[in-house]
Write a protein that binds this DNA or RNA. Sequence first.
DNA 1: CGGGCTCTTGACACAAGTCAAATCGCGTGG
DNA 2: CCACGCGATTTGACTTGTGTCAAGAGCCCG
Lengths: 217, 217
Amino acid sequence: MRRFKVGERVIAPGTELLREGEPSDALFTVLAGLGLRSKSLANGARQVVGVVFPGDFVGLQAGVMDAMQHSVEARTEMTVCVFRRDALWHLFREHPERAHDLTWLAALEEHLLGESLAALGRLSGKQRLARGLYRLYRRGDALGLVRDGRMRMPFVQQDLADALGLSLVHTNKLLRAFREGRIARWSDGHLHVLDESRLRDLALVPEDRPPPPRPLI
Amino acid sequence: MRRFKVGERVIAPGTELLREGEPSDALFTVLAGLGLRSKSLANGARQVVGVVFPGDFVGLQAGVMDAMQHSVEARTEMTVCVFRRDALWHLFREHPERAHDLTWLAALEEHLLGESLAALGRLSGKQRLARGLYRLYRRGDALGLVRDGRMRMPFVQQDLADALGLSLVHTNKLLRAFREGRIARWSDGHLHVLDESRLRDLALVPEDRPPPPRPLI
DNA sequence: CGGGCTCTTGACACAAGTCAAATCGCGTGG
DNA sequence: CCACGCGATTTGACTTGTGTCAAGAGCCCG
């Protein structure tokens, strides 16, 4: 394992850690901070494909394929653990359990994307917003980022809209409805969940959630 | 490798090879036939998350996670190569190159889901339809399933609608527009692409496509 | 012959997009 | 210290893409 890890690095907010379409010599495990995974389309639109939390592994595509298929951008200052891409082979050869974990992570990512796909394809805007906020909140809660129902939210509404597949204006109006319905509040760079069970009901999320992600290293 | 493969099996059309939420003792590589991957939501809606072509590997989630996160259903008669789930460990231990290929496949799947996500989130119905048809067509073409611009399409319009995140009625009307615009035709259980370049333009797909999938075994 | 699936089409409703403008911070430079 | 500009947020008015409802046609199969 030692031979795999190169060192740590601190990333400034707004920096692109990995860029869509480009290879990368380094892979990362996030130790602290939040980021976004996003793709851009030929028409200039952007789709957020996921949020990066501490414990997440990024760069797998660059590791096993030729290039990243989405960008990863820091939204707060991030601390990451850096690995060398060419050490991946070593890992597969010498640490089959770790290689297995890596594949497990890839399968988890596939699962999360499938969930998002179903949400975009089959839920209304309101439901998508509820689901998005609920997932952010639960994920943050599991990481201890929530206090008194509030968590730091270093994203702008445009990010949220790009994640939900909605326009900025419409997203804003839905947020207003959630605020006035005392369900959740998004302001001051914070997410405040006022009525978690109503949020969950709106999001059509079953009670029991899939197991929490297991960190790679 | 021998020890990994159990045998072959023929699946009748309409059969669920793997069921969402359930584990599976067996994993499969598709040798022939077409199928669908789909998820269902709490409100009863269905989202098609992908089409299964010959060469595809299905069941990875059941292999490394506890259970499948989507169902896989045969749409034609399918011939599959069957592997034992518990042989996966053996593969990771003894065949690191194969394990690497497996992870590569998982990353490819992640890529495809990301593409679909961006399409659902940021493209119009017309563009989504164009992209869907174009991808089916190119994939089929690469496998030699296309002759004279036509390929067998054992899906119903509801499947297409569930893949594109559109209603059945609207999908039908878009297909009509494509038919009348002499872009593509979907009838008789066949897809007939009349103007591939227009289809590609509509779909906002760049000229150069990602590398074709590499079969696992 | 009758019952289900598909597929098709029209009429209508509504969710969500677009356009436009006002407001609010906030950092910067005069 | 204040004016300015820029990005983020908010809101209203209007347009339109899609969904929903309903009904009919074609077709296969029992």
